[in-house]
Design a protein around this nucleic acid. Structure first.
Lengths: 339, 339
DNA sequence: ATGAAAGCGCTAACAT
DNA sequence: ATGTTAGCGCTTTCAT
C-alpha cells in the first residue's frame, strides 16, 4: 500500500488541493510546483486510491449506455447477462448503466434513432452492436466528438476510432473448426461449410479460416463445398438436401445460422457425417448431447458482455484506454463432455 | 441506485448508528427497532455501498495469506499470476495479500510450519494447496476455529469445512479427453492412458473419466492400456518404449506429468499415434504447434488463482459464503489453432 | 497560485 | 438502547 495524497502533500509542503491540481492537470497551478509534486509522487510511488476517488465523485454520476438486440438470438441474451452483472457491481462506484433492448431486427434508421436517444443523456461510453453502414458510422463518429466513447460489441467496425471492439476473432474461429475437421477425418474427405453469406464479414472470415487450415494440412486431398443459406433454415434445409443427393459429405461445418434446418436435412437423409456447429443454443446443445453434433465453437457471449463493461469502467474510473483496441474473447471448443 | 443509510435513518427516525446496528447485528439495540429498521431497509431496497464501506474500514486491514509452491510446476506460476493480479486490484479496498512461495517440493512438516507462520498474522482467509494428510487437515481445522477461513486451491480436501475448493473437476477432464479420443479414432482402437499413479486422487479420477466415456461410446470395441510412470520422465520413456514394442497404440492420453519422456519414446519409435496431453507447458505448447500433440486439456491455472481470490474478497467485503463449496473452473480443449 | 473546508456513505469510538 | 462525532482518501467549491 503506497502513501496517501495527504502524506504526499505534507512531504511537498503544500495542501491536498494542490497535489490534486498537479496530478490531475487541473491548471491554476505553478508549473514549477506541479512538476515538483509529480516527481515526488513518482519517487514515493503514489497511486490514487480508486475507492476513495469514486466515493468522492459519486455525485458526478457517470453513465454507460448500451444498445443491443435481445430477441434476435439467444447469443445476445447471454451478452446482456454479462453486461447486467457487471453493471450491478459498478453501481457502488457511481456508474449507472442504461440498457436499451431492441426486440426485433432493426433498420439503419431505427438504430440511428436509438443512438440519438441514448446520446441525449450524454453517456461517457456507448456500447453497441453497430450496423456497418455509413450513416451509423458517421453518427458514432459524432458521438465521440461530443465526448462519448464507443465500444463495438460482437460486431466490428474498422473505420472508426473505437475505445474498443469486443468480440471474437472470426478467422481464428474458422481455423479452429478446420483444425477439428482435420483431426476427425481421414482419407480424402469432403467437407461442407454452411454460412449465411460471403457478403457478411464474419461469415466470410470463418470460411476463409476453415479453408486455409484444410489447405495447409491436407492440401488437395480434401474437397470443400460451400453453402450460403442466407441465415434461413428452409434454404438451409433445401440446399443441404440437394447437396447430399449428389455428394458424399464427411463433415459439415455450420458457421452461422440455419443449423437447425441443415441438421434436419442431414437426419432425413439418414447419414452420419461429422458435424461442427457454432454457438450454444438450446438446439445445438441438445444435438451435442445426443451426439448428432460432435463439437461446437463457442464465442463466450457472457464474457463478451462482461469485458465490454470492464473496459468501459476502466476508462471511466481510471481513464485507461486499452492498448489494443481489438479485444478478442477466447474461443472455446466444446465437446459433449464439456457441458 | 437505492437509498443511502442516512436516508434510511431519516425514514426510520433514528440515527445512522442505529441503522448500522440493526443491519449488521451488532447488538446493543432494541430488538423491536432493529426489526422495524430491517423491514424498512427491505421495503426501500437498501443495499450498502460497498465502496463507502471499504473506505470506512480500511484501517481495520484485512489479510489474505497464500501458501503455494512456485517452482514445482509452471502450472502454479500461472495460478500465482492470477492471485497477484487480483491482489493488486483489492489493495484499494484495504485488503492485503501475503504470498508465501515455496520453492521446492515440501514435506508435511514443512507445510505445517508454513501454515503456523501464516496464521500468526491472523489472516481472514488462507489460500493453500494442501497436502492431503491428517496433520495438515487437523491444523487447517484449527485455523478455521480461530477465525481463519480456508480455501483449497488446485488440490481438494474433502473432510474439512472449506470456504471453497477452487480447481478442476478431474473426472470431467478425463471424460473430455475420452470424448476427444472417440472422435479422432475409428475401428477398434487401442488407447494408452499415462498417469503418475492410481494412488493420486486426481490421476485416478482422470483415468476413470476417460475409461467410462470409452466404454459408454465404444463398448468393448476399444482397448485401454494404463501406464503409471510415477510422474517421472525416464520411467515414462521406458514403459512407453516397451509398450510400443508389443502393441500398436492408436492414441495416447497423458493425464499427468512425464509427458516429455513419453513423447520422446513415441518419436523414437517412429509411429504417429494421436496424442492428447494435459496442461500448457513450454513443451506441450511446442508439441501442439508442431502437430505432435493433437489436443490439450487446459485447467486454466490463471483463472483458478483469480477465482480463489475473488471468493476470498467476497467473503471479506460482503460476508458471502459460496453456495457450493466446490468451485470447478472451466476446462478447455485446446487445438493447435486455439493458441 | 494556493489553501481551507465540506462532503461522498459508511464504521466505530465515545457520549448520553 | 440510542445518538454524536470523527475519520477513511479523495474531489470540489469557495476563500485568500
Amino acid at each position: 500500500m503506497g502513501i496517501t495524497m495527504q502524506q504526499l502533500a505534507d512531504i511537498a509542503r503544500v495542501s491536498r488541493a494542490t497535489v490534486d491540481r498537479a496530478l490531475n492537470n487541473r491548471g491554476r497551478i505553478d508549473e514549477e510546483t506541479a512538476k515538483r509534486i509529480r516527481e515526488l509522487a513518482d519517487k514515493f510511488g503514489y497511486t490514487p486510491n480508486i475507492v476513495a476517488k469514486s466515493l468522492a465523485t459519486r455525485n458526478r454520476q457517470s453513465l454507460v449506455s448500451v444498445i443491443i438486440n435481445t430477441k434476435q438470438n439467444i447469443f445476445f441474451s447471454d451478452v446482456i447477462r454479462g453486461i447486467e452483472t457487471t453493471a450491478r457491481e459498478m453501481e457502488s462506484f457511481g456508474i449507472r448503466t442504461d440498457i436499451t433492448h431492441t426486440s426485433t431486427d432493426f433498420s439503419v434508421a431505427d438504430q440511428l434513432h436509438l443512438i440519438d436517444a441514448a446520446l441525449e443523456a450524454k453517456p461517457n461510453v456507448l456500447i453497441i452492436t453497430p450496423i456497418y453502414e455509413p450513416p451509423i458510422i458517421e453518427k458514432l463518429r459524432m458521438a465521440k466528438e461530443s465526448g462519448t466513447e464507443v465500444i463495438a460489441i460482437s460486431a466490428d467496425i474498422t473505420d472508426l476510432d473505437l475505445l474498443s471492439y469486443v468480440g471474437s476473432d472470426h478467422l481464428k474461429a474458422g481455423r479452429i473448426a478446420g483444425n477439428m475437421a482435420t483431426l476427425t477425418s481421414s482419407g480424402h474427405p469432403h467437407f461442407a461449410v454452411v454460412i449465411g453469406s460471403r457478403k457478411m464479414l464474419g461469415h466470410k472470415l470463418r470460411l476463409e479460416g476453415f479453408e486455409s487450415v484444410i489447405r495447409e494440412t491436407l492440401g488437395n486431398d480434401a474437397r470443400i463445398s460451400v453453402i450460403e443459406n442466407e441465415d434461413d433454415n428452409f434454404i438451409s434445409y433445401d440446399k443441404i438436401s440437394e447437396l447430399l443427393c449428389n455428394e458424399d459429405i464427411d463433415m459439415f461445418f455450420f458457421g452461422a445460422a440455419g443449423t437447425e434446418g441443415g441438421i434436419k436435412a442431414i437426419e432425413r437423409h439418414g447419414r452420419h457425417p461429422r458435424i461442427i456447429a457454432f454457438d450454444l443454443t438450446e438446439f445445438t446443445k441438445a444435438k451435442l448431447k445426443d451426439r448428432t453434433i460432435d463439437a461446437i465453437i463457442y464465442q463466450n457471449p457472457y464474457t463478451q458482455g462482461r469485458r465490454a463493461m470492464q473496459i468501459a469502467n476502466d476508462y471511466i474510473l481510471k481513464g485507461i484506454r486499452p492498448g489494443n483496441p481489438r479485444h478478442y474473447v477466447d474461443l472455446h471448443l466444446l465437446l459433449r463432455e464439456s457441458l
